[in-house]
C-alpha cells in the first residue's frame, strides 16, 4: 500500500516559488547489510524520484543506497499555473508509487 505524505501549499501566487516536501515509507535496504543468517539482504531501494507540473517534468532525482530509510525529499517549484503536481517514485522489485497534489495559482 502506498504510504506517502506530501506537503505543498494549496494555493500560491502566480510566479511565486513554492516548496514541496515528500515523505514515503520504504526500507531503502542497501544491499550491503547482513541479515539474520549472515546472508546479505538483497538491495531494495527507490532509484528515482520525479515531479511533474501539469505533466511537464520539473524535478528528477536519482537516489542511491545512501538515502535514508523512508526517504524524505524537499525541492522548490515556480507556481506557473494552476494544476497538478505529480510525484513518482520508482525502484527495485518493481516499486512504483504515484501521488498527486493540486495547487491553485492565482
Amino acid at each position: 500500500m502506498a504510504n506517502v505524505l506530501v506537503n505543498a501549499p494549496k494555493t500560491a501566487k502566480r510566479g511565486s516559488v513554492v516548496e514541496i516536501k515528500a515523505l514515503i515509507m520504504h526500507p531503502m535496504e542497501t544491499g550491503f547489510r547482513p541479515g539474520t543468517m549472515g546472508k546479505i539482504i538483497p538491495r531494495n531501494i527507490i532509484e528515482r524520484f520525479t515531479a511533474t507540473w501539469n505533466g511537464t517534468e520539473i524535478f528528477d532525482m536519482e537516489m542511491s543506497p545512501a538515502i535514508a530509510a523512508n526517504p524524505f525529499v524537499s525541492f522548490f517549484a515556480v507556481a506557473s499555473e494552476s494544476g497538478t503536481v505529480g510525484l513518482r517514485w520508482t525502484g527495485d522489485e518493481g516499486f512504483v508509487v504515484e501521488e498527486r497534489v493540486v495547487i491553485a495559482v492565482e
Binding site: 504510504n3 506517502v4 505524505l5 506530501v6 506537503n7 516536501k21 515523505l23 514515503i24 515509507m25
Partner: peptide
C-alpha cells in the same frame, strides 16, 4: 508533521 517519519505510521494506522 510532514517531516516526521513516524507520521507515515500514523497515516497507516488511520487506514
Amino acid at each position: 508533521d510532514t517531516a516526521n517519519p513516524g507520521m507515515l505510521f500514523v497515516q497507516l494506522g488511520s487506514q
